[in-house]
C-alpha cells in the first residue's frame, strides 16, 4: 500500500507561450502509515506535486498511483484527502459543523457515525462545541484553518496531505495540530505535510523529501537530511553545528530546543568540572 510517483513531469499552461516545466522527472514513493515531510523553497513545485496525489492535476508524463490505482481515478478520492495551501477557500458550509461534515457525508457517512466523526475531528483540534453552529467565516484566520483541517481529518482517509498547514497558526494551535497529526499517524493514517517549518517536523517525520526548481534533490531520514542540506536547517541545528566547529563537543543532529539545552548543559558542566 503506497503512493507511487514514477518519472513525473508536469507543465502548467501547456501549449501556450507561458508553458514551463514545474516538475521534472520526479520519482518517489510514500508507504502507508508513514509521516512524510515535503520541503523546498517557494515555487519549487511542492504544491504541484501533491496536487497529483488525488488527481487534481494529471501528469504530463510519468505516473502517479495510489495503492496501485491511477491517482485521477474516482476511487482514489476516497483514500487521499488534500488540504490546500489557502484552506479558507475550502470553507463553504453555513456552520462549522456543516463544513466539517461535508467530506465524510460525501464518503457515505450518515447519522450517528457522521456526528461522531465530526465531533472527534473538531475535538482533536481543540475546537469547542460553542463554535459548532457558528458560520466559519466569523472565525479568526487561525480558527478557520483548523476548521478546514478538521474537514480533512473527519473524512478518515488513508492518506492525508496538508499543504502548508502551519502558516498562519500561532504557537498553541501549531502544537494542537501537530499532536493531532501524530495521533492520526499512530493509528495508521499516512500523513504528508508540505511545510517549510522544518524545525517542527524533523523530529516527527519518518522521511523527508526536498524539491528544488521542480527536481527532487533529496529523499531520506531526518538525520540524513541534516547531513545533506545545510541551507535548509533549523536555526538550532545550525547553532549546534557552529558550536561543533568552534570545538564545542555537542552532537550535530539536534533539531529542537530541549535536546540542544541538554547537550549544551552537558558540555558546560563537563568544562566546569575540568576547571575545578
Amino acid at each position: 500500500m503506497s503512493i507511487d510517483v514514477r518519472n513525473l513531469t508536469f507543465r502548467y499552461d501547456r501549449g501556450t507561450s507561458l508553458e514551463k516545466t514545474s516538475l521534472e522527472d520526479v520519482s518517489l514513493s510514500i508507504d502507508k502509515g508513514e509521516f512524510v515531510l515535503i520541503g523546498g523553497e517557494i515555487g519549487s513545485g511542492k504544491s504541484t506535486l501533491v496536487r497529483h496525489f488525488n488527481g487534481l492535476l494529471k501528469p504530463f508524463s510519468g505516473q502517479v498511483t495510489v495503492d496501485g490505482m491511477a491517482a485521477h481515478e474516482k476511487k482514489v478520492k476516497a483514500r487521499v484527502g488534500v488540504l490546500f495551501q489557502f484552506p479558507q477557500q475550502q470553507l463553504f458550509g453555513r456552520t462549522v459543523f456543516e463544513d466539517v461534515a461535508f467530506g465524510p457525508r460525501n464518503f457515505g457517512y450518515r447519522g450517528n457515525e457522521l456526528d461522531l466523526q465530526v465531533h472527534s475531528a473538531l475535538e482533536l483540534l481543540g475546537l469547542g462545541k460553542e463554535i459548532y453552529s457558528v458560520s466559519p467565516f466569523r472565525l479568526s484566520g487561525g480558527q478557520m484553518r483548523l476548521v478546514a483541517i478538521a474537514g480533512v481529518l473527519a473524512s478518515r482517509l488513508d492518506y492525508i496531505v496538508l499543504d502548508e498547514p502551519f502558516s498562519g497558526l500561532d504557537a498553541e494551535n501549531k502544537k494542537i495540530l501537530l499532536s493531532a497529526l501524530r495521533h492520526l499517524n499512530s493509528r495508521g493514517t499516512s500523513v504528508i505535510v508540505v511545510s517549510h517549518r522544518m524545525s517542527d517536523l524533523l523530529s516527527v517525520a519518518d522521511r523527508v523529501f526536498l524539491l528544488d526548481q521542480g527536481n527532487l534533490v533529496f529523499g531520506g531520514t531526518p538525520a540524513e537530511y541534516v547531513k545533506h542540506a545545510p541551507s535548509h536547517l533549523p536555526e538550532i541545528t545550525c547553532l549546534m553545528k557552529e558550536l561543533r566547529r568552534k570545538g564545542f563537543d555537542v552532537r550535530g543532529d539536534i533539531f529542537n530546543i530541549d535536546d540542544a539545552f541538554s547537550e549544551i548543559s552537558r558540555v558546560l558542566n563537563t568544562k566546569e568540572a575540568v576547571r575545578r
Partner: peptide, 14 residues
C-alpha cells in the same frame, strides 16, 4: 500563546 524564537528560548533556559 507566543512561542519565543528558539535561540532566545535556549539562552533563557541556559
Amino acid at each position: 500563546g507566543i512561542e519565543l524564537p528558539p535561540v532566545v528560548a535556549l539562552s533563557l533556559m541556559l
